[in-house]
Write a protein that binds this DNA or RNA. Structure first.
Length: 262
DNA sequence: ATGGTCGTCTAACGA
């Protein structure tokens, strides 16, 4: 059936082995055209692809054992574009997957968490973000329909954190990370959620500890960034908190954006 | 109170 709308979604599932039934249920309910997954924590061979293929989704996986891992599920045909960032081909961490779906370049990212400012992991996060921005600047065109989505592990501004003063200068909200995100925005990407919602208090991640979800102590770090050909077609954006309320949830909620069909 | 909770594997470590 030729739907008039086209929906992109992103979800950090924190283990696809644990979360596959929840993801399959959610796909059956919401039927996004594309779902970008992060934190699979499985190899490509161990990815439970049948659960999603039965629902009519094609499956592209860039996985690894134990950590990281990203996948793109799509109702339409997906042509893999690349699975490593230029300049980071030797990086063993599976955090990147780009594919063309329905004429849109879909770039799924699991940006390094960074642990804490000043650590080796933080330096790796900044290097990884620099390589990502450089790829966009040197090889891509903001006049093309491109969606960069996933877990950025960066809160764009004060509205995106439950306690911005506690996080100022810390990982998720330090100035170099925010500058790296602004560099992508300045290249020609827009945060679709902010096209439709201007107020704070909308989060996509809540720590498992301290009853953080119940108290809405969270951060909006899962983003859908799009170039202007897609932004002009945007109809709505949403964070779906329902799966976060289920037993054994991921610590992240899925985020969605709907467009007139490209 | 410098913790708490998950998921990886079954001891710490990453988030």
């Amino acid at each position: 059936m030729a739907d008039a709308t086209w929906t992109l979604a992103s979800w950090n599932v924190n283990s696809i082995k644990v979360r596959a039934p929840q993801v399959a249920d959610w796909l059956g309910e919401r039927r996004p055209d594309v779902l970008a997954l992060q934190e699979l924590k499985v190899t490509e061979a161990a990815f439970p692809r049948e659960a999603f293929e039965e629902l009519g989704y094609r499956v592209l996986v860039h996985g690894q054992k134990t950590w990281n891992g990203v996948a793109i599920l799509s109702r339409g045909e997906a042509e893999e574009v690349r699975r490593t960032l230029p300049g980071m081909e030797d990086d063993p961490q599976a955090r990147f997957l780009a594919a063309r779906v329905d004429g849109v370049l879909v770039v799924d990212v699991y940006v390094p968490n960074g642990q804490a400012v000043g650590t080796d992991k933080y330096d790796y996060k900044l290097r990884w973000l620099d390589a990502l921005a450089r790829w966009f600047e040197e090889e891509l065109d903001p006049a093309e329909p491109i969606a960069l989505l996933g877990d950025f592990n960066i809160a764009p501004d004060e509205r995106d954190l439950w306690d911005p003063e506690a996080f100022r200068g810390e990982v998720l909200f330090s100035e170099p990370e925010r500058a790296a995100l602004r560099r992508l925005i300045d290249w020609g990407l827009s945060d679709v959620f902010r096209r439709f919602h201007e107020d704070g208090g909308h989060y996509s991640w809540w720590d498992y500890r301290q009853a953080a979800f119940r108290r809405n102590m969270g951060a909006r770090i899962d983003l859908i960034l799009v170039t202007s050909p897609l932004l002009e077609r945007a109809l709505s954006a949403e964070i779906d908190r329902a799966p976060r309320k289920l037993p054994r949830p991921s610590d992240h909620a899925p985020v969605l954006a709907t467009f007139r069909r490209p």
